[in-house]
Design a binder for these strands. Sequence first.
DNA 1: TCATCCGAATAAGTATGAGTAAATACCCTT
DNA 2: AAGGGTATTTACTCATACTTATTCGGATGA
Lengths: 256, 256
Amino acid sequence: MPAVALKRAGGSAGNPTQARRLSESVAHKLAVLIIGGKLRPGEILPNEDEFAASLSVSRTAYREAVRMLTAKGLLAAKPRAGTKVQPREKWSLLDPDVLNWHLEVEPSHAFIVSLFELREAVEPSAAALAAQRHDAADLAAITAALRHLERDPEDSPAVLHADLAFHHAILKATKSDAIIAMSPVIGSTLRWSVELTIVALPRVHGEALPFHRGIYEAIHARDAQAAERIMREHIHAAIRNTLASLAAAAARRGET
Amino acid sequence: MPAVALKRAGGSAGNPTQARRLSESVAHKLAVLIIGGKLRPGEILPNEDEFAASLSVSRTAYREAVRMLTAKGLLAAKPRAGTKVQPREKWSLLDPDVLNWHLEVEPSHAFIVSLFELREAVEPSAAALAAQRHDAADLAAITAALRHLERDPEDSPAVLHADLAFHHAILKATKSDAIIAMSPVIGSTLRWSVELTIVALPRVHGEALPFHRGIYEAIHARDAQAAERIMREHIHAAIRNTLASLAAAAARRGET
DNA sequence: TCATCCGAATAAGTATGAGTAAATACCCTT
DNA sequence: AAGGGTATTTACTCATACTTATTCGGATGA
């Protein structure tokens, strides 16, 4: 019986909110159960036949989903022993999908803070390298993003897009593949916090502009130390705003 | 016809050199082709029936392999359009498997340097946080690793193991999940460079000891700045040694 | 009583074939 | 020449049969 009822929502790298394949939507569904704590580490899933049937999908689709989650460290399967949820330390938290699934599921305070701590480690160094190594194309990308950021601070989707472009362009300017590979992590974190801030504390949303301009100018001047310092201040401010937004959102929920 | 001929080598997170499942060994084989450049970004693979047959495996096993590599950003499949190698920017370079596969395939100089640049961004910050946040258990782990490092500098496998434990313990002491999630990346990089150095320049292998001791003492003293500084120097020295080892290995290959 | 081996049961792994659905190329019509 | 529809190619899903790995448990022997 085909899975007419199973919505194909939630997903993969390319298209965050829509999974084309059935196996992907199953993977998403399982991932949310795991990350949301409905399926705990150490827990053993029902066997393939049962679980696939209970999801109204074929064993094929179910198994492919399990394979994807195994590839991301969320599950491990052994004959006879069954398929088991891995301890959290084994999860690929920095995998774009895994991270986005976390952000879907009311991430804990501590996890958000930790993401910003990682940004605070990586992005200042990246800005310093960008100041040293950027070429004309990098500078053009950074400039364009900055222009969009300054043009219309009210147009939230455009600002978000420009913000993402700004940070990505800086990583790219490092010419360091491993650092550039952090872009999805930084992008997801940024998107989540900007979207939160827009609804929770719209006014603070524009406060980041001076930082962006400062970072741009430091990179342009090839002043690595200044770029590093301002980026650090920027991320510091961002985590403060994000925590404030979380508090505001919680308070709002409390009074309604 | 079952794949009697296909060796099941190469692989997954748990067991680096042996894949239990056929689909995993297929994934490994494809990954090596892609990362090694035999299959280039943009290139379209033969269709499932053909390619599976040419590997002497069933479509089932082949498809599961493709799913795993898709989950890691190496491939993308669309009906009618076929299965295509993704551009390198989409690869999950920080995924443990992807990274290990890179290190199997004569990684480029630039990539190695970039990994160390990432370490140089993350680990000094991590050391600073560790100095501030470590508890008794963290300190015990760090101490134990240091003791093993100092005990028998000649026993290479033990030293490697202790080195990995040392760096992992520091990350763990940050209590910051996203930073801890960098551990596989750092561990793989470290293992690769230590194994290279052992064969290429055995004598420099012990030079890291003073750094390790210095980092330990700074963390113990909860001196975040010192921990950060010494860690940075440590990684600096490590990349210098690694590049020297690469040069030595190349020279040796040249004269034989 | 304990240890060891062997067999049975269970779960994942692999293979095959049939049929579905989506995307593209091509041809036909206007 | 442009538009739309149809055929084809490809991945996707399903169902089923069979294989292999692992573990549990009981029989056997010391």
